[in-house]
Structure formats: structure tokens, C-alpha cells
């Protein structure tokens, strides 16, 4: 009897201990990046440093990724709950195989793809690329959209000389003159500019979004399981994340410092330069017209048409609306 009583007391103590710790513990969320930390990935770090997640009683763990497919896989298999990756990659994956991931909040409302040329090259528009050598990396999603962009500018793939090379070699190739232009994301602009400056050259960026390629790109995606099992947590997360995006682009220097605090290898100055250079991907005509944080059916449809065409998939393969869930958007 005595031991039974003791056990009972212990159990009660244990139970109260568990209940207090669970009451104190914030909800755990694993956030998936589609690449390594950098300026374009700053909002989630800012949210942690500025306490936006803590305000929503969330504890966020960040997992770096190795490309949009890798990020999608990790969300689909439940390694991560929510994350940022390309909505085009998600649509393509849905058309292929119905991955249990949906887009819940837009981040980049314009395409990040761009041509870069040196000012000294005399190339002023995409039309000027006719007969020129253009370098790209082998696995970037930009390659799929290239024919569309060229077509919109009255060119075809036969009009340019396309070469493929390691992403790290692209800017050096252009600076040393072994290629006339390169294809890369505008998220790299700040880095390329500093490289070009080191060699005494000046850079021109020609974003494809200016040339008629209008689509959503990097977005907040979430695993369907996470949304089903913890809808409240998801809602609170997105609310805090929206706040983080706002803060990041309003205070790029602070954002740089916040990211540096969590990833000391990152140079705060470069990060803030990156954030400034991609401001237009986040805030632009689309957000002015549609309001920030809204996926519109029309633009989703347009995005899917580009993605389908670029990937050689029938436009009827999926209803692109199934790739989006607007109900977690903060009020």
C-alpha cells in the first residue's frame, strides 16, 4: 500500500511536470528553405530575431535545402512542416505526381530570372542578344522559361549560342569575356555586382519579368499533413511570416544583422544589399494591384500556363487552383 501511494504521488508530480512544460513549450515548426541561407531567405531569420514567431507562441527550426525539388520532397515526406520554394516547381510536381504540398502565401510575385550583361558589351535589350553567347547553369529552372522569353522578344533558341556551366563560374566567365551574357536569378545581383566591381566593370540586369514573363515564383508552401493536423499553428505561422517579410524589406540593414546573428558566416552587408536588390520581386505592380499576400486565380492560371509550356506538359494536366490554399492567409 505504501509503495502504491508513493507511486501515485510520483505519478501526479510527473503529470503536473509534463502539463506545465507543455503549457510553457511553444509549438514547434520546421521551416524548409530551398537553398542555403542568403538575402532572399532573410524573413524567417528576421521573424525569429524580431520575436514575431515568439509572439505567436511558435518555436521555429530552420532547415536548409538543396534546390526546389529537395525542399518539396522534404515537405512532402514530413521532414519539414512549411517552407519557401518555387510554386512553379510545385505545380510541375503536382502534374507529375500529386505531392501533398500546397502553396499558402506568395513571396516573390514576379519571376526572378534575368539576363546579366556587362555595360561594356553594348547589349541594351534582350533583342540585342541575337548571335551572342549566353551561359547558364545546367539545372536552373530558368532554362525552361528561356524559349518563352526569347519568343516574346522575337528571337528563338537558334538565335543565341547557349552554353552550360557551373553556377559559380557564370559571373567570372562573363567578367573575363568568355561569354557575352549569363542567365541567373536577380537574387544574385548584389553578389555579381561586387564581383564585377572588383574587376572594374559594371553590370546590367535584364529581368525577364520586364519582358512579359509574368508569374508567381518563390512562395510559402506547406505540407498538407501540417495544415490538416495543426491548422491553428499554420495560421499563426503565416501571420508571423507575413510580418517578417514586411519588416525585412522595410529594414534591410537590420535584416542583414539578424541573419548574421543566426548564421555568422553570412556577411550582413551583402545580405542587406541582396534584400534591396530583390525588393521588386516582392513589392511590384502585381502587389499594388492585387494587394500583398493574395494569390489571384488569374495569375495562378497564367503561372501554370507558363510552367506547363516550359515543362512540355498539357495545360489540362492539373487544375492549378489545387496547388493553392488561400484559407491560411492572415486577415
Amino acid at each position: 500500500m505504501k509503495t502504491a501511494k508513493k507511486t501515485a504521488i510520483r505519478l501526479t508530480l510527473l503529470a503536473s511536470l509534463i502539463s506545465t512544460t507543455s503549457a510553457m513549450a511553444a509549438d514547434q515548426v520546421t521551416f524548409q528553405l530551398d537553398w542555403l541561407p542568403g538575402g532572399d531567405k532573410a524573413p524567417v531569420y528576421v521573424g525569429i530575431q524580431q520575436g514575431f514567431f515568439a509572439d505567436e507562441d511558435l518555436e521555429v527550426k530552420i532547415a536548409s535545402g538543396r534546390g526546389s525539388t529537395d525542399a518539396l520532397t522534404k515537405m512532402a515526406t514530413g521532414q519539414s512542416d512549411i517552407g519557401s520554394s518555387d510554386i512553379g516547381a510545385l505545380m510541375a510536381a503536382k502534374a507529375q505526381d500529386n505531392v501533398p504540398v500546397v502553396a499558402v502565401y506568395p513571396y516573390f510575385t514576379q519571376a526572378p530570372h534575368a539576363f546579366f550583361v556587362l555595360k561594356s558589351s553594348g547589349i541594351k535589350s534582350i533583342k540585342d542578344l541575337k548571335g551572342k553567347k549566353v551561359a547558364t547553369s545546367p539545372f536552373t529552372s530558368s532554362n525552361a522559361f528561356l524559349p518563352l522569353v526569347l519568343e516574346q522578344n522575337g528571337l528563338s533558341e537558334d538565335d543565341i549560342k547557349l552554353v552550360k556551366s557551373d553556377p559559380g563560374a557564370l559571373a567570372p566567365m562573363m567578367i573575363t569575356g568568355s561569354t557575352d551574357a549569363i542567365i541567373a536569378w536577380v537574387t544574385n545581383t548584389a553578389l555579381y555586382e561586387s564581383q564585377a566591381k572588383g574587376a572594374g566593370k559594371e553590370l546590367i540586369e535584364m529581368p525577364w519579368s520586364n519582358s512579359g514573363l509574368s508569374l508567381y515564383s518563390s512562395s510559402v508552401l506547406a505540407s498538407e499533413k501540417f495544415l490538416e493536423e495543426r491548422p491553428d499553428v499554420a495560421k499563426r505561422f503565416i501571420k508571423a511570416f507575413a510580418k517578417s517579410i514586411e519588416f525585412t524589406y522595410a529594414n534591410p540593414d537590420q535584416a542583414g544583422a539578424d541573419l548574421h546573428k543566426m548564421v555568422p558566416e553570412v556577411d550582413a552587408k551583402i545580405v542587406s544589399a541582396q534584400i534591396k536588390s530583390i525588393y521588386n520581386l516582392v513589392y511590384n505592380d502585381v502587389t499594388t494591384q492585387d494587394g500583398f499576400g493574395n494569390f489571384t486565380d488569374a495569375r495562378i492560371q497564367k503561372t501554370w500556363e507558363y510552367v506547363a509550356q516550359a515543362n512540355g506538359v498539357s495545360v489540362d494536366a492539373i487544375d492549378p487552383k489545387t496547388a493553392v490554399n488561400n484559407s491560411f492567409k492572415p486577415e
Binding site: W35, L36, P37, G38, G168, L191, Q195, E265, V266, I270
Partner: peptide, 10 residues
Amino acid sequence: YFIQFSTSFF
């Protein structure tokens, strides 16, 4: 990771 990371920042 560090090498990959450094390369991504050139």
C-alpha cells in the same frame, strides 16, 4: 556545408 555555402556567396 561551409564550402557549399561560401561558394553560393562567391
